[in-house]
Design a protein around this nucleic acid. Structure first.
Length: 328
DNA sequence: GCCAACGTTGGC
DNA sequence: GCCAACGTTGGC
């Protein structure tokens, strides 16, 4: 039944302009800071479920300029961590073709000459990847250390697709255009949900474009609000309505995110897969092993490595921001 | 609780 | 559009 859904665009009112893929972007100061910050810290992310069950409608603002319902535009782009030079660690060999490649072994290794990859990260490795199993898998996440952020990868479909009369399209540009924290609703998969429950304000996440021409990581966002009840599950009109979800005992939750940066070039799935070969930095990356997971974990090592793939130079010279430029 | 059938995801 | 992977359901 309810398959792992993705971000659903609230098209009810303003059917978001089918902003298709664009190109351009830079990394904003904020993100830069975050990246450096996260790169410097380390902690096994163990989280606690604590959390506020806040209706989706309850949108909060994290820093000024936020209006109810929409989003917040942030970002002034700037290059990522200086040390994060572009290094693509070309390891040819497309790892698996069909989606959920039953990926490789275990043993995370470093990313070769990638300066960033030389750092030893242990990050979230302490968390076991939740495997598909009963509905109530890992119901209660463990404790989380509040000092450092955890990293995630969340999928959304950038191309229009109508479900129950509503376009569920949601791209990095849509998020960028939002003026208020965006509730990432529609997740209807237990493993993904459990991952969601592990999130905390301050955690960072990759925005992944899926089910599109060039799937891959399009940018970065930040979790700005603890998880709360996903109200869309109770709305019969909503694409992701779940008749089995009881309001008294909500099954699904969401987190609110804010745009942080859009990569100049999308980091293609293919590239991620190239680095997921045995011995590759991404060999254990959850999303590459469980491709159908709409919300997955990213270890710090993976995070650092992936952000290092961003073309820093290009980003650095591109100071323009926010304007939606036509891609291609 | 096992497991086959079925349905969905999502890369290609 | 195809189809592998895999989550969910439901019979037993």
């Amino acid at each position: 039944m309810a398959p792992p859904k993705r971000k659903v665009n609230a098209v009810e009112d303003a059917a978001a302009p089918p902003a298709k893929r664009r190109r351009r972007s830079t990394l904003n100061e904020n993100s830069k800071k975050v990246i450096e910050q996260t790169a410097a810290s380390s902690r096994p992310s163990r989280i606690s479920l604590a959390a506020a069950n806040t209706p989706r409608s309850l949108r909060s603002s994290t820093d000024g300029a936020i209006t109810p319902t929409s989003t917040t535009k942030k970002g002034t782009k700037t290059p990522i961590n200086g040390s994060a030079t572009k290094s693509t660690t070309k390891i040819s060999s497309a790892k698996g073709r069909k989606k959920g490649k039953k990926a490789v072994k275990a043993t995370s290794s470093q990313g070769d000459e990638n300066p960033v990859a030389n750092v030893r990260y242990q990050a979230n490795l302490s968390i076991d990847v939740p495997t598909q199993s009963g509905p109530e898998v890992a119901e209660e996440p463990e404790e989380k250390h509040p000092e450092a952020p955890s990293y995630w990868l969340m999928k959304a479909e950038p191309d229009s697709r109508v479900e129950k009369g509503k376009d569920i399209k949601f791209s990095i540009d849509d998020l960028k255009a939002a003026t208020a924290p965006e509730g990432w609703d529609g997740v209807r998969n237990y493993v993904a949900r459990n991952n969601m429950r592990l999130r905390m304000k301050g955690d960072m996440a990759f925005f992944y474009h899926s089910n599109c021409k060039v799937p891959g990581i399009a940018g970065i966002m930040e979790i700005v609000q603890e998880h709360s009840v996903d109200e869309s599950a109770f709305d019969p009109e909503h694409p992701y309505y779940d008749e089995k979800s009881d309001r008294e005992k909500p099954k699904w939750c969401l987190v609110h995110v804010e745009f942080r940066q859009k990569f100049v070039e999308i980091i293609k799935l293919k590239e991620l897969q190239r680095n997921a070969k045995e011995g590759g930095v991404l060999e254990n990356m959850q999303v590459l092993k469980q491709s159908r997971l709409s919300v997955s974990k990213v270890t710090k090592e993976e995070w650092i490595f992936i952000t290092s793939l961003v073309d820093v130079e290009e980003v650095a010279t591109d100071s323009v921001q926010h304007q939606p430029q036509i891609a291609a």
